[in-house]
Design a protein around this nucleic acid. Structure first.
Lengths: 197, 197
DNA sequence: ACCTGAACACCGTTCAAGT
DNA sequence: ACCTGAACACCGTTCAAGT
């Protein structure tokens, strides 16, 4: 994880890891079956950092909090985000996170299947948002300022407001609010278990 | 592009391309500055396939159409999606697509800066949705069926509906509708240029 | 029984040597 | 002037040989 955080996901090689551990590459294969298994361990280590506590707020801030929590965790380890693309995360911590989120949505009154779709949608949205945090060569700010106003008037107008390229956090928050607005309209009325005294 | 579509993005190596062209790797460097430039060409080739025609419908179906068009294009070339992560697409066709979309949103009454944020949000959502189309090892269907019902009741209930793992198209459509619902509430009233006779 | 140097088959990129 | 074989410094993975 230190290597990925410091030098990015491409810098994580079996050789680099072996060197950091003052060992040889062959020795690593005694502890992990190969690079894919190593990457899965890193992914699940990020899920382990997520706070699954129920803040007891109303559903919207709770749902937003879970999505934001995942976003912040991946923001602290941006090099891990690309590793989440290789396979569906299925480590113990990822399983717990999914279970927690789907259970909350079901308790909110969403049908089991729809809860799964909502979780997948939000999780993939968070992932998509964090993936852009490690763009290899972002010189795009200058590129947008230098754009030809005649050929690209709308692009230029947006760049002139200083909002293009779009700041990652702004975009994430904006899209999350859009989705929560959309969910608001789909939310079943008055669900959940009764907490009686 | 044939190599990427047939064998996936990892199969695209300078050697594989040189072989397919019955040439040598060194010769490729006379036509392209390196692998990153080659990847950028593939990305822009996908943007070139997008239909920018104005269907003249109302804003919601037009916006949905543009997003769906990008989704379908990437679905036809799923191996290209991961290549869009390396850098902000800035080829001529990507520039035209962004200009078109931002202009439509501005014509709809959104401020220049907000239009850019909306475009970035939708574009990244589309990308995030297409990225999962080439998961290396999707055995997750069986994995979800075999999940322990005691430990993961909500996950199990969702899997039992046959909706987990979530079908990519279902998830894309669901999230897109959520975002369009959200945009509906933020849309400025009565904008656009006048088309007088 | 546990560990590992050295090899194998790859990769992107470069450059001296060919035509 | 244009092309390219062969090399360089990497990579993930394996296995015979060491202790």
């Amino acid at each position: 994880m230190e290597i990925v955080n410091r030098d990015g996901p491409d810098a994580l090689s079996m050789r680099a890891l072996a060197d950091a551990l003052e060992s040889g590459t062959a020795t690593l294969y005694r502890h992990v079956s190969g690079r894919p298994a190593l990457e899965a361990l890193l992914v699940d280590a990020v899920f382990a950092q997520l706070d699954l506590a129920d803040d007891g707020d109303e559903w919207r801030s709770r749902t937003a909090g879970l999505a934001r929590g995942m976003y912040e965790a991946l923001r602290r380890h941006p090099g891990v985000a690309p590793l989440m693309l290789r396979s569906t995360p299925n480590g113990p911590n990822a399983m717990k996170h999914r279970e927690r989120c789907i259970a909350l949505l079901q308790a909110e009154g969403f049908a089991a299947g729809e809860a799964a779709v909502i979780y997948a949608t939000l999780a993939h949205y968070v992932l998509g948002s964090t993936l852009q945090l490690i763009r290899h060569d972002d010189r795009s700010a200058q590129a947008f300022e230098a754009v030809d106003p005649a050929a690209y008037p709308a692009t230029r107008a947006a760049a002139a407001t200083g909002r293009l390229p779009v700041a990652p956090e702004d975009e994430f928050s904006y899209g999350l609010e859009l989705m929560l607005d959309g969910l608001e309209g789909r939310r079943p009325t008055a669900p959940s278990a009764v907490t009686a005294p």
